[in-house]
Amino acid sequence: MTKSHASRRHLATSPFSAPVEPIVKHFELGDRVSHDQFGLGRIVGVEEGVAMLVDFGSRQARILSPYTRMDRL
């Protein structure tokens, strides 16, 4: 059985830097956003802490947390 990286502890003497948790961005219903892959859109649905439903005009996409590829305009 292998352990995931999240359950491993970081040793102070390790030559590698400690893993960094991604910062979770917060969006609200109606926010205008820019996504690296899909372009410009508007938040049309919110699943608190899980996902955002975004309307990009030609399509809607469910973007999962931590929203690293999406920024508020």
Rank of each mutant, 00 (worst) to 15 (best):
R32W: 05
A18H: 01
M52R: 15
S65L: 07
G30W: 07
R9I: 08
G30H: 09
H26S: 14
V33Y: 04
R69A: 13
L53W: 13
A18K: 11
P22E: 00
E28D: 14
E47W: 12
L11G: 05
A51I: 14
V33L: 03
E28Q: 12
H35K: 01
R62D: 03
E47Q: 14
R9P: 01
L53T: 14
T13Q: 06
R72E: 03
S58I: 11
T13I: 01
F56Y: 09
D55S: 11
F56V: 04
R8T: 02
L73K: 14
K25W: 02
T68M: 14
V20Y: 03
A51D: 12
Y67A: 09
A6P: 00
E47K: 15
V20Q: 13
S65P: 06
Q60A: 00
Q60K: 04
M70C: 10
P15R: 00
S17C: 01
L40T: 07
V50H: 13
S14H: 02
S34I: 10
E28N: 09
P19L: 04
T68R: 15
D31N: 10
K3P: 05
T13R: 04
P15S: 01
S7W: 03
D36F: 09
P22M: 02
G45Q: 11
F16T: 07
V33E: 04
R9C: 01
T2F: 07
H5V: 08
T68K: 12
V44I: 15
R62G: 06
V24C: 11
E48F: 13
V46L: 15
F27N: 10
E28L: 06
E47S: 14
Y67G: 04
A12Y: 02
P22G: 00
I43A: 10
P15Q: 03
E21Y: 05
M52N: 14
A12M: 02
Q60D: 06
R42G: 05
M1V: 06
D36W: 10
V33F: 05
D71N: 15
I43T: 10
P19A: 00
R8Q: 03
A18S: 06
Q37V: 08
R59K: 13
I63Q: 07
G30R: 09
S34A: 10
V33P: 04
Q37G: 09
I63R: 10
L53F: 11
R8G: 00
A51Q: 12
E21K: 15
P19G: 01
G41T: 02
R69Y: 04
I23W: 06
A12E: 09
D36K: 15
L64Y: 14
F27I: 05
G49E: 14
T13A: 06
V44T: 14
E47F: 13
G45W: 08
R69H: 03
M52K: 15
V50M: 12
L40Y: 06
F38P: 02
G49C: 12
V33W: 05
R32Y: 05
R69M: 13
R62T: 09
S4Y: 07
D71P: 01
V20P: 00
V44R: 13
E28T: 10
